[in-house]
């Protein structure tokens, strides 16, 4: 079950960044092709409406950012100023690490709740009431996005969903840290598949009387 959630999260953020790139690529191609005075083709291209691409790209990236931030907790990519706490004794340091992580859990929990209230007010309440035939007072439909004309509350859902997931990830990391004393880390300095012997078309010169560093 948790594995499934992990995969879903990874799959979602990777597809969003890939798809957004593709969409902008296509819209730029379309814009250029439509400007070329080729008979028939130009008229056909002009009938295709690509005005919604920027908006969709922005919304896809916001979704990627919110769920990616949760994934980032799991991979330990959110950086903090750890100079001060690293100079402390191991036991005190551990306390600060837990405080820091709890701060994350607290913030994301609050934001998730605020976000849900907001989404509820700007259209979800109306959508739920209409869907299930509830007769609630003061029902007003929320705004729609200008270009796609989809209800904005659906887009805004990224805040509560992403924040609650992020909160859950912080709690997971806290639990693991207390149990094992380890924090997740991302190694950004690693490049796969580099050939060991990089060939400059020369034979390695002998060290010219200098000490070599550690390999």
């Amino acid at each position: 079950m948790l594995k499934f959630l992990d995969h879903l999260e990874e799959w979602l953020v990777a597809s969003l960044i890939g798809a957004a790139t593709l969409i902008i690529f296509l819209s730029v191609l379309h814009r250029y092709a439509s400007g070329l005075p080729i008979p028939v083709v130009q008229d056909w291209l002009l009938t295709i409406n690509m005005s919604w691409t920027q908006e969709l790209c922005i919304y896809m990236f916001i979704w990627m950012a919110k769920f990616g931030a949760a994934y980032g907790v799991r991979t330990g990519i959110h950086v903090g100023v750890d100079v001060f706490i690293n100079s402390l004794l191991e036991k005190t340091r551990a306390k600060f690490v837990v405080i820091g992580l709890s701060g994350g859990a607290l913030f994301t929990a609050i934001v998730g709740t605020l976000g849900f209230t907001f989404v509820w007010e700007v259209g979800m309440r109306y959508a739920v009431a209409t869907a299930f035939g509830f007769n609630w007072p003061d029902l007003t439909s929320g705004p729609v996005s200008p270009d796609l004309e989809w209800p904005v509350w659906i887009f805004y859902l990224a805040i509560p969903l992403g924040s609650y997931l992020m909160c859950f990830r912080f709690l997971q990391v806290i639990r693991k840290f207390i149990r094992t004393g380890r924090l997740p880390q991302t190694d950004t300095s690693h490049v796969d598949g580099l050939a060991d012997d990089f060939n400059f078309g020369d034979t390695p010169a002998a060290p010219a009387g200098i000490q070599g560093g550690k390999p």
Partner: peptide
Amino acid sequence: GLKMRIQSSKILDAQMRVLGAI
């Protein structure tokens, strides 16, 4: 075939399309 900047609006979008602009 001209690329014309508009602000987000379905009407302005339609206006430019009627003129044959993008």
